[in-house]
Simulated scan of single mutants.
Amino acid sequence: MPASPAEEHPVAFDDPHYRAAVVDLLGAIGYGEVSAFERLAEDAALAPTLEDKLALAAMAAAQVGHLVRLRDRLTELGADPFEAMESFRVPIDDFHRHTAPSDWHEGLVKAYVGDGLAADFYREVAAFLDAGTRELIVESLEDAGHSAFVVDRVRADIARDPRLGGRLALWGRRLMGEALTQAQRVAAERDALSALLAGGVDRPGLDLAALGRMFTRITERHAARMQELGLDS
């Protein structure tokens, strides 16, 4: 059944502040996809086997597929997708510069834990959006089963060398700290995103207690991922 005019143009988009927040959020996720593609391509060079290289190549290709949909949606909203993404280049590049993996295993953990933290934050914010935008974001953050590859590799290598687990657990904690710092920085520096989290006449908002619970949920999901990897959080 064709979408009704109301479905094609949610009333929330009549609010310029809401539209600006959506453009900001899609721009942030879009640049995150660009950055993830570049990082996974670099990590593939560290892969010990051809099978591992191809697995990371598939993960990188998935980022491009997500990026195309985000770019198209930004264009539909009348925004320049590259300008929207450029706004988040510095904080996202800073995160990756501060968390550059030193070897194959750190790269795997970062691909799973680091990207998972970012995805959790964006999903939390997406709860405040119209259904169409929320669905696009959730689909763009799907890992298409790639997490199973990372979990299998890391757990198998820790079983062979238990000392590896301690080092990677420390690495996971560092990723958590850096990711939360950058998420809070982005939310604070972008007025439209801050206003979105504060709510509106037709949308709920987050007070300080609710914001604290949001970051608690993100922390709990991080701990669950670390446990899946066989690491202490």
Rank of each mutant, 00 (worst) to 15 (best):
L141K: 09
R163I: 01
A119T: 03
G177V: 02
V154Q: 08
P91H: 10
T133S: 13
E83D: 14
D115L: 04
V90W: 07
L168I: 04
D152H: 15
A100M: 05
F95W: 15
S87T: 12
E139A: 15
L108S: 08
A144Y: 09
M176Y: 14
F82Q: 10
A159L: 13
A127P: 00
R174G: 14
E178Q: 09
D161H: 14
F149L: 14
I158H: 08
G166Y: 05
M176D: 01
A144W: 06
D130H: 03
T99K: 05
D120H: 11
E124P: 01
E83H: 05
D120P: 00
E142K: 15
V90A: 15
L168M: 06
A126E: 08
D120R: 09
L170W: 03
V125P: 08
G145E: 06
L175M: 05
F149E: 11
F149A: 06
A119Y: 04
R153D: 04
V151Q: 13
H98V: 00
G165K: 05
M85V: 08
A119D: 09
A79L: 07
P162T: 10
R123Y: 07
R153A: 14
L170F: 00
V150K: 12
R155N: 02
A100G: 03
V113S: 08
D120Q: 14
R134S: 13
S147C: 05
D115N: 10
M176G: 01
S140C: 12
V109T: 06
H105V: 00
L129A: 12
P91N: 09
P101E: 03
R89G: 11
E139V: 06
H105L: 11
F88R: 00
E106I: 01
P101W: 04
L141F: 11
F95Q: 01
I137T: 08
Y122S: 02
Y122M: 12
P91V: 09
G166A: 11
W171F: 11
V90C: 01
L136N: 09
Y112D: 11
A79R: 08
I92P: 00
D143T: 12
D152W: 11
G107W: 07
D93P: 00
V109C: 14
P81H: 08
D161G: 03
E124C: 09
V109L: 12
P91T: 11
F88G: 02
W104T: 02
E135H: 13
G78H: 06
A156Q: 13
L129R: 10
G116Y: 06
Y112P: 06
G165M: 05
R89F: 11
R173Y: 01
H146I: 00
D161E: 15
R155V: 14
A100D: 05
M85L: 13
D130A: 06
L141C: 13
M176V: 00
D143H: 07
A79T: 05
D94V: 00
R163S: 15
A118R: 13
I158A: 07
A119E: 01
F82T: 06
E106C: 01
D115F: 02
A100T: 14
P162W: 10
A159G: 09
E86K: 07
R155H: 03
R163D: 15
